[in-house]
Simulated assay, not measured.
Amino acid sequence: MDVNHHQRYTLPDRSFANILKRDIARLAEGLGFSASEVGKINIIVSEMASNLVKHSPQGGELLVKTIGEKASALEIICLDNGPGMSEPRRMMQDGISTTGTAGEGLGAIKRQSDEFDLYSQPGSGTIILSRVHRAAGQVHPPQRQSRFETGVVMVPKPGEQLCGDGYAIIEEGNNLYLIALDGLGHGANANEASQLAAQVFQSNYKSDLPVNLRLIHTLIRRTRGAVGSIAHINVARNQISYCGVGNIAGKIFCPEGGKQATTCRNIISYNGILGHNIPTTLNNQVAEWNNSRTLVLHSDGLRSRWDLNKYPGILNHDPTTIAAVLFKEFSRQTDDTLVMVVRNKV
């Protein structure tokens, strides 16, 4: 599956808008997007950049990556640290503006996007998620309907080209198998460790979780080492199993009334480092899983003290939007960062 990290495009001031637009257009052209699809992407990026200039004077950024088989779509996430909106749905209507402009920006982004989501609240800025599908990338037999929704934001440490975090997700019928990884340090050596660990996991994803972790531990000894957590969701059994080594953390949420993001389980791992030293005893942890539950896993690039209850209604949004909110609000910015969000597709 596609496990590309997001590329960061910062916009410290208005003068960078054209550079940002040009670079993302070149990326899309190089991936085989048609002229009309690149045109859509240009409009989306232009409007996002305009919003950042108007509403995020301290600077904002875009996260961009390809998704799907054969780079069949381009995902663009706008991270706006501005004042946020009290009525985001109203602000998407053409003609509505807080800065005296034509008020067509959010509506234009939504119209040009094949998939669109927006989360905003006063005091916490705004997240805009846009995906544009490449028509040529859709020419393949229709795939089985997925039972799960997953969202991932993975970003290298500022200044690094490779990401030392990594992950893998495998869906098979009623089952979802995943691993979240963080190679020690950052850069090429950390990337090597996490990528090798992900490959070992994918070759043995049906193994008992502690067995798979021990195999990863053995086979990545020549690398710098990594920490990692494996989870297995079985929809038919309404069950999630997980086991981890090192500081991959996370939570399982059980929303109350569709608004409160109540934590029903903290994801806790064993002390140790895969490839160096792991406990003699590793056991699966098992919890209830159903359509109302959401799993969040993250590397230590995200600060540990975060609370989704500060973001009313966030669990009703696209999993990638949830991951982007956590990244924007809680990323340390001194390390690689991985945030994974998983739930059943209802």
Rank of each mutant, 00 (worst) to 15 (best):
P12E: 12
Q112A: 15
W306A: 01
P156D: 08
T98M: 01
G100N: 02
L20R: 05
L209G: 06
I248L: 11
K54F: 01
L27E: 06
G183K: 15
G246I: 05
M1A: 04
A135K: 02
T101Q: 04
A102E: 14
R22Y: 07
V3Y: 13
I267E: 10
Q93T: 11
P319C: 14
S120T: 02
S34H: 00
I278S: 06
G275T: 11
L297D: 06
G125I: 11
I216R: 10
L162G: 03
T99Q: 01
P12V: 08
W306R: 03
V53H: 10
Q145W: 01
I127E: 02
S36W: 07
A236W: 01
V339Q: 13
V296K: 04
A287M: 00
Q260W: 00
S120N: 04
I267S: 09
R90D: 10
I67M: 11
N4C: 09
Q145I: 10
V153D: 11
I268S: 14
R222V: 07
R131I: 06
G107M: 08
A188W: 01
H317K: 06
E47Q: 00
A71I: 05
S304D: 15
S72L: 05
P279K: 13
W289S: 14
R8T: 08
F116A: 13
T101L: 04
A226G: 09
I41E: 02
P319V: 14
G187H: 15
I278G: 03
G107W: 04
T99I: 03
D13H: 07
L282H: 05
A180W: 04
I314Y: 04
L315D: 07
I233D: 10
L11I: 07
S113V: 05
G246F: 02
A197K: 00
A28N: 01
A168Q: 08
T218H: 11
I216G: 09
Q161Y: 12
E29G: 00
K40M: 11
N51S: 10
G164E: 12
R89G: 04
G185D: 05
T150V: 13
I230P: 01
S229A: 12
R111M: 13
S304K: 15
S34Y: 02
S292Y: 03
T99S: 03
T218Y: 06
V200N: 03
D182T: 15
S97N: 09
H232V: 13
R144K: 10
E75Q: 08
G32C: 13
H133E: 14
P142W: 09
N189Y: 14
